[in-house]
C-alpha cells in the first residue's frame, strides 16, 4: 500500500492563494471598482472579496493602475520613463494594425523569384531555401524555457489528457489533465502559437482554474496553446505535455 502524500505547509499556502472558479473576472472587478454593476452583483462581488485574498489583491492592483497616483519620491523617475516613451511615440503608434507596411509573405518572395534574371537564380534559390527554413522554424511552436528547466531536468513521461482542447463553444474556466505519478505540483502555461507566454500558474492538483487574467486572452477564433509540466518534490520536471491547441468558436464570453 502506498503511503499517502503528507500535506505540506508551503503547498497549502500556494493553493490557498490560487484562483478558484468563483474568482471574479477583471471586468467584474472593474465594474465593482466603479460601482457600475447591478446592486445584486455588487453584493456578490463584495461577499467574494471578503473571503478571497487573491481577488482583493487583484482589485487593489487594478485600483493602483487606474489611479496612477505616483508617490512623491518616484515622480522624477516616472517622468523620465514617460519622457522616454514619448520619444518613441511615433514608432509605438505605427505598430497599430492595418496601416503599417507589411513584410512580404514568402509566397510574395517566391513570385519575385521568377521575375529575377536567370543568373541570379542559384543565389536566390539558396536565399529562398534559408528563408523557408526560417519561416517554418518561426511558425512552429517555440518551446520557451519554463521556470523549472535547466540542470537536473528529467523528462521521463508526458502529461496527457489536457482539456480544453480543439474547438470550444465557451470560454473555459478550468484546465484539467491526467495526474502523473510522483508529481508534487504542476506548472500550467497558456501560450500564443508563437510561444509567447500569456499566463502561468503552479498548482498541486490535476486542474487549474483559469483566472480573469488568463481568460481575457481567449479571443474568438484565436488559437492558443496549453502546456502542463509535472514537477516532483525535488523540483525536477518529470513530465511535460505536448502543446495542446484550443480555439474559442463562439463569441459568448
Amino acid at each position: 500500500m502506498s503511503t499517502p502524500q503528507q500535506p505540506d505547509g508551503e503547498n497549502l499556502l500556494r493553493e490557498a492563494v490560487s484562483t478558484t472558479p468563483h474568482c471574479l473576472t477583471i471586468e467584474q472587478l472593474d465594474a465593482y471598482l466603479r460601482a457600475a454593476a447591478a446592486q445584486e452583483q455588487m453584493r456578490t462581488c463584495s461577499t467574494h472579496l471578503a473571503s478571497c485574498a487573491r481577488c482583493a489583491n487583484e482589485l487593489a492592483m487594478l485600483r493602483e493602475f487606474l489611479g496612477a497616483e505616483v508617490p512623491q519620491g518616484q515622480r522624477e523617475d516616472v517622468r523620465a520613463v514617460a519622457r522616454a516613451l514619448e520619444g518613441n511615440r511615433e514608432r509605438l503608434l505605427s505598430a497599430a494594425p492595418g496601416r503599417v507596411e507589411t513584410r512580404p509573405s514568402w509566397w510574395g518572395s517566391l513570385a519575385e523569384l521568377f521575375t529575377m534574371p536567370r543568373l541570379s537564380f542559384a543565389a536566390a534559390a539558396l536565399v529562398l531555401a534559408v528563408s523557408v527554413g526560417l519561416y517554418v522554424r518561426q511558425g512552429r511552436v517555440v518551446e520557451t524555457p519554463g521556470e523549472f528547466s535547466g540542470s537536473g531536468v528529467y523528462r521521463s513521461g508526458k502529461v496527457t489528457g489536457i482539456t480544453p482542447s480543439g474547438d470550444v463553444a465557451a470560454v473555459p474556466s478550468v484546465v484539467t489533465w491526467s495526474a502523473v505519478p510522483g508529481a508534487q505540483r504542476y506548472q500550467v502555461r497558456m501560450l500564443e502559437v508563437d510561444g509567447n507566454e500569456l499566463w502561468k500558474t503552479v498548482v498541486a492538483g490535476s486542474s487549474a482554474p483559469l483566472p480573469a487574467a488568463a481568460r481575457i486572452h481567449i479571443a474568438f477564433t484565436k488559437t492558443l496553446l496549453l502546456e502542463v509540466t509535472a514537477i516532483d518534490e525535488a523540483g525536477k520536471q518529470i513530465a511535460i505535455s505536448e502543446a495542446t491547441r484550443f480555439r474559442l468558436m463562439s463569441r459568448r464570453r
Binding site: 493602483e64 496612477a68 516613451l85 511615440r89 505605427s94 497599430a96
Partner: peptide
C-alpha cells in the same frame, strides 16, 4: 496611425500610468 489624433490621445492618456506601473 502615428498621425491619428485619436490614437495619440489614447497614448497620452495612458503613457504616464504605464510608466508608473
Amino acid at each position: 496611425p502615428q498621425n491619428d489624433p485619436h490614437l495619440n490621445e489614447l497614448f497620452r492618456r495612458y503613457s504616464e500610468r504605464v510608466a508608473a506601473w
